[in-house]
Amino acid sequence: MNELANQNEEISAILARLIDPDPGVRRIAVLDLLDTDDYDLVAPALLQALGDQDASVRAEAAIALEGFETPEIIRGLLMALTDEAPEVAKAAAQSLAELKSPVTGVLLVTALSTAKGFQKASILRALRELRVPASLAPALAALNDTDDTVRAAALGVLGYLKAPSAVGPIAVLATSDKAPQVRRIAVGALGFEAADLSAILPALITALRDEFWQVREESVATLGKLGMDQGVPYLIEAMMDEYWQVRLKAARSLGKLRSREAVPVLSKALFHQVSNLRKEAAVALGEVGDARAIPALEKALQDPDPDVRKLAGLALSQITGK
């Protein structure tokens, strides 16, 4: 009983500081509020602090509201996304992104209809992990947004939903979006779709010719992830890419696909000047398990990089079964 009384006293003292004329004191009161366990008292107080006249207090409140999932608080955070102070808007977006309960998705989807720019991208980001079916239609519509960050966030939602109907629109963005970052994310989002491989492959092949290496890298990784044997010739071609980073992911995918046709290119990559690629090639050759790779792997046992030597040894034992 005494303990309870003490706690109430402590909270009253913090609530009094929350209306102090000094914004610094109010901000610290927000921090202290979080350390108390009484959520019924804390939530309304934090919501009030979210409407404070000082931006630093509002930002602190937006950070503190992470983990609260009541409708009032979500509405408050959605409002804070349009705050004039960028630090408040960013903090609100971060807290919204941590929402876990799918029930909150309805509120977010409703808010999406009038949102734009940063606000829209943040709401889509928050919807991503909730995987609510209601977010499919607005996310598809957002693929035509003029803002790069909105399109990227919408792709995130679609990638998580894994809806077959989204494959076509995602493939269009993967091959023809004007922003390289968006193309890269779209190519990655195709990796989640297991529905219709015939629609995905042409898009991935086009992405392999992209002028930005990050898009090509994502494409070879996605080919491996989907386990598409039809992709092998293109992956072998990607082993000639001017960027070793692309070759590295291609080697990993070829290993995953256990492609025997790839043994010559992988053996060659075993002697590339970048040791990361040499390591990946050794691992891939082990996975493929073709005896033709043995001479090259034996030579790689003399590699200057100890990791390459170790992985070449492992690959050899995988192939010979010893």
Binding site: R17, D22, G24, V25, R27, I28, A29, L31, D32
Partner: peptide
């Protein structure tokens, strides 16, 4: 430092 405002973070 704003320790004078009650901060002890």
């Amino acid at each position: 430092c704003i320790a004078d405002k009650g901060c002890t973070v």
